[in-house]
Structures are given as structure tokens and as C-alpha cells.
Write a protein that binds this DNA or RNA. Structure first.
Lengths: 268, 268
DNA sequence: TAGTGGTCTAGACCACTGG
DNA sequence: CAGTGGTCTAGACCACTAA
């Protein structure tokens, strides 16, 4: 019966009331919200409406539900987050599509003697592919690359099309191991003379180094790559978008409304 | 009545059936799915169950709903995406917390004469702050920084705590302009001699340059920053996690099940 | 075993869209 | 205006958790 009773669905009002109560500390993080039945009684609404409200809280990351237990308060504030999205990883590798690779060397090297740190047993021998990447039109290479593949998957390096398809996706196809996480480290380096000559730049010139670790969904690092790019032939750009904890419905405005809302009856 | 009738809720089965039909091309992208009423009849289920199924499709980005129109097929496949999450931007700036800034110079410069490309009128004068950033313990600077602030917000550069709080968050506090997007460009550079002396490295030594553009939720670039870091004192690392189009419920496994599922009656 | 959230039904009315 | 999805109800049974 409040003045603010616009056309908003009641479950929005309930979600607001609850999220504000959480914000105020009425329901501290870690505790359980009232049960659905209790909320039905408090607000005088049906269970489905209450559940819809709670679903919004869950989508925002404010609460979580566990069957048989209850609805737990997870955080006090809606966490805003900037996210970078990479569709199909191919964004990292936009250039993969537009470039050609040339493999120069294939060997097995113990982890301890690799050019990049490899996890696990230092004596474990990883399959290593070394090569260059060229743009379609230009002659000069844009990257010198080393790819280390965990021994279990070394077989993929025999693939006919290894020059065209990223190794990690070959592993995915052949072994069903999927990258659940990619760690990436970017640094500026001085290009060592052996690499410099391959890249056709002068020794000690400036380069950008990108190291990527591919972590399977089981947490195992199954591939590590390193690229060195001449500074003026490559730069790394990315875009971060503001998003909400669990981006789904419920935009910001819907949350930040004047206090006096409540659906119909909220005697409590 | 199929053999696969595990304990899965029916709306999962419906969502599978629909997403597979989309995948098969039965419902091409851009067309409308059958109406909820039709689906109720086809599957012999209640409207709420059907709606729950469609909600899953929407969460996956496969479909979208419009009141008064229908449910539109948006894509044929579930788009997988790697995302980098930055809570509160402070992850980019982990070091902001642990470092101190020292402002060396404050001036107004026309866009055309800045060290980084600035959007808009080349004669527009941006407020520029130049300074260094130090780690708490070390004496040597880890970055030389230029911050360009759009003239409308130049006033924030007078703030007392401008050394401690990132400028863009001052703008957010004072003017309510929020960064909805951050573009970031990372490159390796050779450090110019004037900057080198400030950073106490030798001229032409290797550095990592990071340029960030802060774009407001209205699409306006209101701040641009540039940092140059000595190569051995800074590197940029990030983590990308595999996620689904509209990460919510509905994990991958729930989608990739053997074909013969259907709830109970699907005579069609 | 009692109590929680998870699923499901059969109905109802409303708000929006398009002809 | 007819038809769509959006909201809401009152009731039911189930699956899970903890005591």
C-alpha cells in the first residue's frame, strides 16, 4: 500500500527488502535467511513468489540455497566486477587465424631445462615444439614460440595440421582434456641474440613475452606456451566490462530504490 | 518411459530436447520457438515447468523472451567463453594498495600533444598528472605514470587524497560517472631517457607500457592513463576461467547427455 | 524423522505486442 | 483486439540434510 508501489513485481520488492536487510546486517553473512515458509508468512505472498525473490538474490551472489538446509547469506554487498570475455579463446589468438606457423624444432626436454617454469617433477620430459609465426602478407615473423606439452599428450604433436590448429585444441579433441583455466603472464623482455636472429631484429632489442599455462578442468597443467614478440610488431589489448557478480536479471537500478517498498503485508 | 529417466527434473529434459532441436536446426536462429502453451501440450507438462526449461535456454544465451511476441532463438550453440574477472578493478591495481604515489607535475595539455592518443577534439585540453609509483618497502619506483583527465572532471585532481585513491574512483565519487568499460593496451617499449632517469634505469632499457582508457557507462572516455614499468620490476598476469554464455545454473554436463531423454509423454 | 529447499500442477489475471 | 510472455496463487509431493 506504499506510495512507491509502481508496477514492479512483488518478488522485486521482496528481493529489495531482503537485500537491504542483508546490507543493514539484519541477516549477517554466514547465517541463514528465514525459511521460505516464514517469508511467505511475513510478506503474505505465495511460496513461488518468495522463491523468485530469493532466486534474484542468488543470481546476485548475495545468497545460496542448499536443499535440506536453508538459504545462506553469502555476501553483504553486490560485488561488481570487471570482466574480460574471450569467446572461444580465439580472441587471444585472433592472429592465429590470420597467420601461419612454422615449426622449427621438436624435442623432449626435462622440466628443469625448459625456458619457462614447468610444474611438477623437474625430470619429467615435456614435448617441446619451437617455431615462428608469420603474418599472411608480411615476411617478417611476428613471434617466436615455444610450446611445451605434457608427455601424456605428446602424441598430438604428430598431427598433420599442427601448424594450423592450436595445440591445446588438438589435445582437447583427441584426449577430451579441456582447458578450464588459462593463466597468462605478460612481461617486457630483452630479446636474446639467438631468438633475435630468428625474428630478424637486432640482439637485445625490446620484446613482449607472453607465457600461458593451460590448466585442465581437473586442475592439471597440460600445456605451457611462451611467445616472444618484437615490440613494434605486436601489442596486447583487452577490454574489461563492468558486470555484476552473477550477471543475470536484476540490473543495478532495480536494487537501489527508496526504502519504502514492501509488497502488501509485512507486519513481522 | 525411457531408460535414461534418471532423477533429472523434467524441465532439464525439456531444455535438452529444445536445445538439441535448436542445434539440429529444427528451430533456426531468428525464428520463434513454439509458444509456451504449445510446448505444454507437446510435452504434456504444466506451464511453469515449460517456463523453467525456457529459462535455462535463456540463461545459456540460446533464446530470449519478449512479452507479447514470443521466444526467439538467439544462437545455435552454447557459446563458451573464457573470462577474466577483476573484482572492483582493484585487481588491476593490486599494487595501488601496496604502493605510494608521488605526483611530480600537473598541467593542462591539448589532446594533440599528449603522449598517448586521446579521443575527441585535438585542441581539447586535458588535465594531466604525471608522477611515480613506489613500493612500500623499496626505494626505486616501479612505474612512471601519466593520467589524463577530461576537462569536465579536472577538478578532482585537487583532491587532498589524490595520491592515495585512483583518480577514476574520485571521478566516480564526485561526479557519479562510472567506468562501464576499461580498455587496456599492453606493449613492450624502450624507455625514453627522460623517463629512464626518473625510474633510475639506463636509457633505452626495456619497459612494459600499459595504457588504459576508462569509458563511462555513457560511452564517453573520461580518463586515460599510461604507465611505464621497468621490465624487471613489473609483469602483468591474469587468469581466464572457462564460463558459459550467461553463467548461471545449467552446467555443461547437463546439456551433453545421450539423446533419448524426454520426460514422460512426448507424443507430439 | 522433522524440516528444508526442489519440483510440479492447474488454474488465474495482467502487461505487452502486433495487426 | 487476440495472443504472447510475465506474474501470482494454493496446494502437492519429493530429495536432501541434520539431529
Amino acid at each position: 500500500m506504499s506510495l512507491f508501489e509502481a508496477k514492479r513485481p512483488r518478488y522485486h520488492a521482496v528481493a529489495d527488502a531482503l537485500s537491504q536487510a542483508i546490507q543493514r546486517g539484519t541477516y549477517p553473512v554466514g547465517t541463514l535467511l528465514p525459511t521460505e515458509a516464514e517469508l511467505c508468512a511475513q510478506f503474505g505472498l505465495s511460496r513461488q513468489t518468495i522463491r523468485e525473490a530469493i532466486r534474484l538474490l542468488v543470481d546476485l551472489g548475495l545468497a545460496s540455497r542448499r536443499q535440506g538446509v536453508g538459504t545462506r547469506v553469502e555476501r553483504r554487498d553486490v560485488s561488481q566486477t570487471y570482466v574480460q570475455r574471450l569467446e572461444q579463446v580465439s580472441d587471444i589468438w585472433q592472429y592465429v587465424e590470420e597467420t601461419t606457423r612454422k615449426v622449427l624444432k621438436v624435442t623432449d626436454v626435462p622440466a628443469a631445462r625448459s625456458r619457462v617454469p614447468l610444474p611438477g617433477d623437474p625430470d619429467r620430459r615435456w614435448r617441446m615444439l619451437e617455431g615462428l609465426r608469420f603474418t599472411a602478407d608480411e615476411r617478417r615473423p611476428i613471434a617466436w614460440t615455444q610450446v611445451y606439452v605434457a608427455p601424456e599428450y605428446a602424441a598430438v604433436t604428430d598431427a598433420k595440421n599442427r601448424d594450423r590448429v592450436p595445440i591445446f585444441s588438438l589435445i582437447e579433441q583427441r584426449f577430451g582434456v579441456k582447458a578450464g583455466r588459462i593463466r597468462q603472464d605478460i612481461a617486457a623482455v630483452s630479446i636474446a641474440s639467438d631468438v633475435a636472429s630468428l625474428l630478424r631484429v637486432s640482439p637485445k632489442s625490446v620484446g613482449l613475452s607472453v607465457v600461458r599455462e593451460y590448466v585442465s578442468t581437473q586442475g592439471e597443467v597440460f600445456e605451457v606456451t611462451m611467445s616472444v614478440h618484437p615490440a613494434n610488431r605486436y601489442h596486447y589489448s583487452m577490454q574489461l566490462d563492468l558486470a555484476y557478480a552473477n550477471e543475470s536479471a536484476f540490473t543495478a537500478e532495480r536494487l537501489t530504490l527508496p526504502a519504502g517498498l514492501r509488497g502488501s503485508s509485512s507486519k513481522k
